[in-house]
């Protein structure tokens, strides 16, 4: 048996036309399911409306003021840390710069060119290794049985899952840090 549009009329909060009201009333008298739903909704609404607003334990404002003070202290501490870190970083950079500028025997251009040469050598070495790596990848499935590859893969997957599980447990027991959200 179809309960539409009656169910919509029961749960919608838009006002019904007189004709709709009469049709719904007639349906409720003959349909036990809709009548039960309508009765439950009315009963529930009555209980909701009769249920009072709940107050916090006395001293809420004082507790809030303590929390505000704590938040301010934490903010202050964070600022101090950032300031200290910034000053320390700045001082270190200045000292390094001064040291380098006061060392005539250090040839910056020479050291820079040495860095470039090292990077170029490393790249050419990797380029030489590339064909070996390619042939290894191509021939590996022939040399090693498929079951060994599958077994190793499964073992790695299990290890990763165990690590993920442990890290999620550790994360769960850490306090949640919430950002400010005032949507």
């Amino acid at each position: 048996m179809s309960h539409q549009p009656f169910e919509s009329w029961i749960f919608s909060q838009d006002p019904l036309e007189i004709e709709q009201k009469n049709t719904l009333q007639a349906h409720l008298e003959s349909c036990q399911s809709c009548s039960q739903l309508s009765g439950a909704l009315m009963e529930m609404e009555k209980v909701f409306n009769d249920s009072p607003a709940i107050s916090p334990a006395p001293g809420f404002t004082q507790r809030w003021q303590t929390r505000l003070e704590l938040a301010r202290q934490q903010r202050q501490q964070k600022r101090m840390w950032l300031l200290t870190l910034g000053l320390f970083g700045g001082a270190t950079l200045t000292l390094v710069a001064l040291f380098l500028l006061n060392q005539p025997q250090i040839n910056l251009a020479y050291h820079f060119s040495q860095c470039v040469v090292t990077i170029a050598r490393l790249t050419s070495f990797l380029n030489q290794l590339w064909p070996t790596f390619q042939s290894l990848v191509t021939n590996l499935p022939i040399l090693i049985p498929i079951m060994v590859i599958f077994g190793t893969g499964s073992l790695i997957a299990v290890i990763v899952l165990i690590i993920a599980w442990f890290s999620s447990i550790l994360k769960l027991y850490q306090p949640v840090q919430e950002g400010v959200n005032t949507r």
Binding site: S8, F11, S12, L37, L41, M44
Partner: peptide, 12 residues
């Protein structure tokens, strides 16, 4: 609408 429907069913 959806919530009132779900609540009425939960109430029953």
């Amino acid at each position: 609408y959806r919530s009132r429907q779900a609540l009425a069913k939960a109430w029953i």
